[in-house]
Simulated assay, not measured.
Amino acid sequence: MNTVAVVTGGTRGIGEAISLALRDAGFTVAATYHGNVEKAEEFKARTGIHVYKWDVANPDECAEGIARVEAELGPVAVLVNNAGITRDTMFHKMGWDQWRDVMSTNLDSMFAMTRPVIEGMRERGHGRIINISSINGQKGQMGQANYSAAKAGVIGFTKAIAQENARKGITANVICPGYINTDMVAAMPEKVLESIIATIPVGRLGHPEEIGGLTAYLASEAAGFMTGAVLTINGAQYIANG
Rank of each mutant, 00 (worst) to 15 (best):
R87E: 07
R122C: 15
M226P: 06
T3K: 14
E38Q: 10
M226N: 14
Q237F: 12
I129N: 01
M184Y: 00
N81Y: 12
V6A: 11
L79P: 00
T182M: 09
R46N: 13
Q141R: 10
H207Y: 09
A162M: 11
A31I: 06
T215K: 10
V56H: 11
S195K: 13
F157C: 04
H92E: 12
Q141S: 10
M110F: 07
R204E: 01
N146P: 03
R128V: 03
R46F: 02
E41V: 01
R46L: 12
D97I: 08
R124L: 13
P59C: 06
G9L: 00
I14G: 02
A21Y: 01
V4C: 14
N82A: 04
G35C: 14
P116H: 04
I85L: 10
N136Q: 08
G169Q: 02
Q144I: 08
A40I: 04
E42T: 08
N234G: 02
G178K: 10
T182I: 14
S104T: 00
L22E: 05
F91W: 13
T232N: 15
A172P: 07
T171R: 04
K151A: 05
A71C: 09
G242A: 03
S19K: 08
F111L: 11
L73P: 09
N165V: 09
Q237P: 06
I197Q: 03
C176D: 05
A63T: 12
A71L: 10
F43E: 11
T199G: 08
A236G: 03
S148R: 03
R115E: 08
I239E: 07
V76D: 14
S220C: 15
T28F: 08
I118N: 12
I118A: 14
N173R: 01
T232E: 15
I129A: 00
A71M: 13
G178R: 11
A40P: 07
G156R: 02
G120T: 04
G206L: 04
V4Q: 01
D101I: 09
I129C: 00
G13Q: 00
L79D: 01
S19G: 11
G84F: 01
L20Q: 14
A186D: 14
N136K: 07
A45T: 12
V4K: 07
V192H: 11
N146H: 09
R115A: 13
S134W: 01
I85T: 14
V230L: 06
N165E: 11
T158M: 04
E164C: 11
M188D: 08
V76I: 15
F91E: 12
V202E: 03
I180Y: 12
Y52D: 06
A187I: 02
A240E: 12
W54K: 04
A166D: 13
G235I: 00
V80C: 04
L20S: 04
S148T: 01
A57E: 15
N131E: 01
V69C: 11
E16S: 15
F157R: 00
V76F: 11
E70I: 02
T8Q: 03
K191E: 15
H50Q: 08
A77E: 08
G156F: 09
V230Y: 06
A166Q: 09
T199D: 07
G140Y: 03
M103S: 14
G26K: 00
A5L: 05
G127R: 13
M188I: 12
A30Y: 00
K168Y: 15
